[in-house]
Amino acid sequence: MCRRIYGDRFTHSIQPSEFIDFRIGIKYPNFTRRFLKPQVQFSSEGLVPFTPLPADYAFAMLEWGMNWTVAMYEFQRVIIHSAVLAKDDYAILLPAPPGSGKSTATAYLENNGWRLLSDEMALITKNTTQVTPFVRPICLKNASIDLCKQMFSHGTFSETAYKTHKGDVAHMSPQRHSIEEQSTPANIVGIVFPQYSKDILLDIYPMDKTSAMVKFSENSFNFNFLGQQSFETNVHLIENTRQFELHYSDLSEVNAFLNEEFCK
């Protein structure tokens, strides 16, 4: 599965000149559980942070585990729970809770002119608007899985893990153009809070900076540990970007708005 989703970024050979950030693994917790109701367990840097899950969830667990590992150990950057997409040097953050349609929107935008920097975690250099790419598969849930398979039949999808604690989950591989730019940071110009509702016209609400700051800070991962640095970075971002709430049903309208507002 890793080879299918990560392609040639998944490799068995490591050169002495390469620096490995984290060591993680997925394995059977013991001999019995290899055969009897098979389970797998995730390990990261010497810790086993989660209870084991059914073996069918192995790839999903690996992806969640990678997010957990970065959130646990990366404190050189402010981490925001958000999708990040960019066109040229202009990056947009899409912070959103589960059920807002963020992942479908992310997949759509990546397939319509934007490059993906991240599906889940914006890695922001402190006191700047610079975001570092962390290009990994997009996590799709429930109805979004079939919808994306229909919309992007050329895409590469993992097998679906059914009835996880997040519902049905599958991962979609990032596109080639996103991977080619995975070492190129971008500059955040906009923060957009998307909310999907069926069959509505696009509603755009420009936000005042005070409200935007409060809503944005709710999505801070490592705020607790970085404290003041996180606060100051969030303030800097709010002051140097424009913020909107979007209520939408048609993603092409969202794309048109983002292009009009941020890329001219």
Partner: peptide
């Protein structure tokens, strides 16, 4: 049984 992924 509890949430395995603390952040999500």
């Amino acid at each position: 049984e509890e949430e395995p992924d603390k952040q999500n």
